[in-house]
């Protein structure tokens, strides 16, 4: 993947010139060791260094949820976390949801319910939902709303997203015995 050209973001990471820090962590099950600029955000690290372009930047201030990833089991906004803070962490990004090229149930239901239009916010919604369903396979509507409240969508509307999450939860319980 290292030959993939840069994929532009709203903010570019500017090298600080400070001594790099060796960072080791697990991303989507893969053990990774890299030297990183201590000023780099985790979001920039995932995109610029690991070329995982699924995680998006929109607001860059933790307000919109587009950059949501799962870090040590919790949904967090990677734009306001330093890469160096992820030392030893287990991280899952949207690229980690499909297995062997087959979409996960959650992804299938976002498609079947038309829970996206432009798709920019979708990786964030998927990761917030993944963390929710991992911790609580049978959430109430209120619990879904609470967790997805930190993810903004400006085109689909939230009803299809709610439907997709509900159906994914149901199917996971039935098909995966959660």
């Amino acid at each position: 993947m290292d030959n993939v050209k840069d994929c532009s973001m709203v903010t570019e990471h500017i090298e600080s010139g400070k001594r790099k820090v060796t960072l080791s962590l697990t991303v989507n099950g893969r053990q990774i060791v890299r030297d990183v600029d201590p000023n780099m955000t985790l979001l920039h690290f995932l995109r610029d260094n690991l070329k995982l372009f699924g995680t998006k930047e929109a607001c860059g201030e933790g307000e919109c949820g587009a950059c949501t990833i799962i870090m040590n089991g919790q949904a967090v906004t990677s734009c306001i976390i330093l890469a160096v803070e992820a030392e030893g962490a287990e991280i899952t990004t949207v690229e980690g949801l499909a297995e062997d090229g087959k979409l996960s149930i959650l992804q299938e239901e976002f498609i079947s319910q038309d829970a996206l239009q432009c798709g920019f916010c979708t990786p964030g919604f998927l990761m917030s939902t993944r963390a929710l369903l991992d911790n609580n396979p049978n959430p109430t509507d209120a619990e879904i709303v609470e967790v997805l409240g930190g993810n903004l969508c400006r085109c689909t509307g939230y009803i299809p997203i709610m439907l997709a999450v509900r159906r994914a939860a149901e199917r996971e319980r039935k098909e995966l015995g959660r």
Binding site: G62, A75, V76, T77, I81, S128, E146, V147, G149, G150
Partner: peptide
């Protein structure tokens, strides 16, 4: 306080 994701940090 804030959103669920932010409260995780």
């Amino acid at each position: 306080l804030a959103s669920y994701q932010l409260r995780n940090r």
